[in-house]
Amino acid sequence: MSRPVEKSTVALIALFTGSGVLHFVRPGPFVSIVPRSLPHKEQLVAVSGVAELVCAGLLAAPRTRVVGGLASAGLLAGVFPANVSMALRSGRRPAAVRAIAWVRLPLQVPLILVALRAGRGGGSAG
Rank of each mutant, 00 (worst) to 15 (best):
2 S>A: 13
3 R>G: 03
4 P>Y: 01
4 P>E: 06
4 P>D: 02
7 K>W: 14
9 T>A: 14
9 T>G: 12
10 V>P: 00
10 V>N: 09
10 V>Q: 14
12 L>N: 07
14 A>G: 05
14 A>C: 13
15 L>W: 04
15 L>Q: 01
18 G>K: 07
19 S>V: 01
21 V>Q: 06
21 V>M: 11
22 L>N: 13
22 L>H: 03
23 H>I: 03
23 H>T: 05
24 F>L: 13
27 P>F: 02
29 P>W: 09
33 I>N: 08
34 V>P: 07
35 P>N: 01
36 R>N: 10
36 R>K: 15
36 R>G: 14
36 R>T: 14
38 L>W: 15
38 L>A: 11
39 P>Y: 13
40 H>A: 15
42 E>H: 14
42 E>I: 12
43 Q>I: 13
44 L>M: 03
45 V>E: 00
46 A>G: 09
47 V>R: 04
48 S>P: 01
48 S>R: 04
49 G>Y: 08
50 V>P: 01
51 A>R: 06
51 A>Q: 02
52 E>S: 12
54 V>C: 07
57 G>R: 04
58 L>N: 06
59 L>G: 10
61 A>Q: 10
62 P>E: 07
64 T>R: 00
66 V>H: 12
66 V>F: 08
66 V>C: 01
66 V>N: 09
67 V>S: 04
67 V>H: 07
69 G>Y: 10
70 L>W: 14
71 A>H: 02
73 A>V: 00
74 G>C: 07
74 G>H: 10
76 L>I: 05
76 L>E: 04
78 G>W: 12
79 V>Y: 12
80 F>Y: 15
80 F>N: 02
81 P>F: 04
83 N>C: 10
86 M>D: 03
87 A>D: 06
88 L>I: 03
89 R>C: 01
92 R>M: 02
93 R>S: 12
94 P>A: 04
94 P>T: 04
95 A>M: 11
96 A>D: 10
96 A>Q: 13
98 R>K: 15
98 R>T: 08
99 A>D: 07
99 A>G: 09
100 I>A: 15
101 A>Y: 11
101 A>T: 11
102 W>S: 05
102 W>H: 07
106 P>R: 06
107 L>I: 09
107 L>C: 05
107 L>F: 04
108 Q>K: 05
110 P>H: 12
111 L>G: 00
112 I>T: 10
112 I>N: 01
113 L>V: 15
113 L>F: 10
114 V>I: 14
114 V>N: 10
115 A>N: 09
117 R>I: 00
117 R>L: 08
118 A>Y: 07
118 A>R: 02
119 G>V: 01
120 R>I: 00
121 G>H: 09
121 G>T: 09
122 G>N: 06
122 G>K: 02
124 S>A: 14
125 A>P: 00
